[in-house]
Amino acid sequence: MKINYIISILIFIPVLIIQTTVIPLVSIDQVVPDLILILLVYYSVTEGQIYGTVLGFIYGFFFDIVTGSLLGSTIIAKTVAGFVAGYFSSENKIDIYLMFFNFGLIVFLCALIDQIIYSFFSAFDISSNIFLIFFQNAFLPAFYTALLSMIVIIFVPKKRIL
């Protein structure tokens, strides 16, 4: 179990580098996909709910500390997202959940929750248009992330090697 955590953190480092350097180049009107969330959902589905929750906390902590965003906002968002993704963890159904459309839907759901919590903690302003903020800050990035996840999962072997 401990080795699994170390491996998932080691994989996280290059993903974080790509997220902060390459991913902004493919942004559409400042909507960026979240590679870290895709990795987190993958681990939550394959390793279980507790693993996903703890890993979400760790990923969020590292992301907050190196990007300068409000420390804690990504931590709480990724922790809950990892927990929710863990509901789709089942020994018998892993292959079904890792099918490209199903995985995309799980990622979409988790990204939506992740972004809503993140927006709430970092920019909640009662005077703003809540629906518009939800659409721009949560729905669009979640949709983009889900699309990317469908592409990514095609290249990931169904037997877990990560």
Partner: peptide
């Protein structure tokens, strides 16, 4: 050298 293109932060 890197960006956090969040729409909020």
């Amino acid at each position: 050298i890197s960006k956090s293109l969040s729409r909020i932060q």
